[in-house]
């Protein structure tokens, strides 16, 4: 740097001033977040060590780790944990896969149909625009064994009707399909943006070097999309773990506890059984679970990113 003014500005006091101003700018965000996210979380943590029925006039009774110890005895706990993991993993993998394939397909310029593609992009995002309350209801009606749309179509094609909402295993698939349907749109948009940032020269030089289209895809596109893949994995998995309304409306956790999610269990204990201690313990468990998974995921994905 040759400008003396710039050099003069690189003094310690200037840096200190920058940090001070920066802190001021960061402060409102931190205030909001601490007040409305962190403090409720601490509150939940405190409740998880107490027994409380939610009434304003009833004091919370401190019971130590009892709520956590009894979690294992909660009916359906094992099924619920298994399905929460299966659901989150399946939804994340399927969403990212489908949206990646679709983004690659939608991005191929050789068709020259650019207008169609904007329209298609909008189409793929529509599922995310519809309010959660109605989406669950629509899917539940569609999965109806006797009059549902899906079984009607299967019937028309000559296949056997499937009992979507009452069969162990199949109901899980039904719920996963619905969740993927909702989350695919946002992933595609992020992938499309990522794709557009890859310079075309890379493809051209690869073609000159004699690489086939498929090789180009594998060796150039996907590695350079690594940051987008990371973002999509992280946001989709977090959303899948926190999903509550959609799976509940479709299957209510039936049959048995095979499609029960941790969030549904939290809802049941907090709002229906008025047992806030157990509900809070489950919330804390969920937070730890998601945090652990995200940590693992970030480590793996960041390493891949750095390689490329």
């Amino acid at each position: 740097m040759t400008l003396t003014r710039t050099n003069r500005k690189n003094t310690r006091s200037y840096m200190k001033r920058r940090i001070r101003h920066g802190s001021l700018m960061l402060l409102p965000t931190m205030i909001f977040v601490v007040a409305f996210v962190v403090i409720p979380l601490i509150y939940v943590g405190i409740i998880s060590f107490c027994k409380w029925n939610g009434s304003r006039t009833v004091k919370m009774k401190f019971v130590g780790l009892q709520n956590y110890m009894r979690l294992g005895n909660v009916v359906g706990f094992r099924d619920m944990l298994i399905f929460t993991f299966v659901f989150a993993i399946a939804v994340t993998v399927l969403t990212v896969l489908v949206s990646l394939v679709m983004a690659l397909a939608l991005d191929i310029p050789s068709y020259g149909r650019y207008v169609n593609r904007s329209f298609l992009r909008a189409c793929w995002y529509i599922p995310a625009l519809i309010g959660g309350v109605a989406v669950g209801v629509v899917w539940r009606i569609m999965y109806n064994y006797n009059n549902g749309v899906i079984n009607s179509i299967l019937d028309m094609m000559g296949l056997a009707k499937v009992n979507w909402l009452e069969t162990y295993g199949v109901t899980g698939i039904a719920v996963i399909i619905a969740q993927v349907w909702v989350q695919v749109g946002m992933c595609i948009i992020i992938f499309l943006a990522g794709l557009q940032s890859i310079p075309l020269e890379l493809y051209e030089s690869a073609t000159i070097d004699g690489a086939s289209k498929l090789q180009q895809r594998l060796k150039i596109t996907i590695p350079l999309l690594a940051p987008s893949i990371t973002i999509n994995f992280v946001t989709t998995s977090i959303a899948a773990f926190k999903a509550y309304e959609l799976p509940y409306t479709i299957s209510k956790g039936l049959p048995g506890y095979s499609t029960h999610l941790v969030t549904q269990m939290i809802y049941h204990y907090s709002f229906e059984a008025l047992d806030y201690g157990t509900g809070a313990a489950l919330s804390i468990l969920l937070v730890i679970l998601i945090a652990a998974i995200q940590l693992i995921q970030l480590i793996i994905l960041r390493r891949r990113e750095d390689i490329y």
């Binding site: 977090i238 773990f241 926190k242 509550y244 969030t263 939290i266 937070v287």
Partner: peptide, 16 residues
């Protein structure tokens, strides 16, 4: 903080 589920924090927030 992105990992915190809202459903668990509803009642504390209501009280706050």
């Amino acid at each position: 903080l992105m990992v915190i589920p809202f459903i668990g924090c509803v009642i504390p927030l209501v009280i706050i």
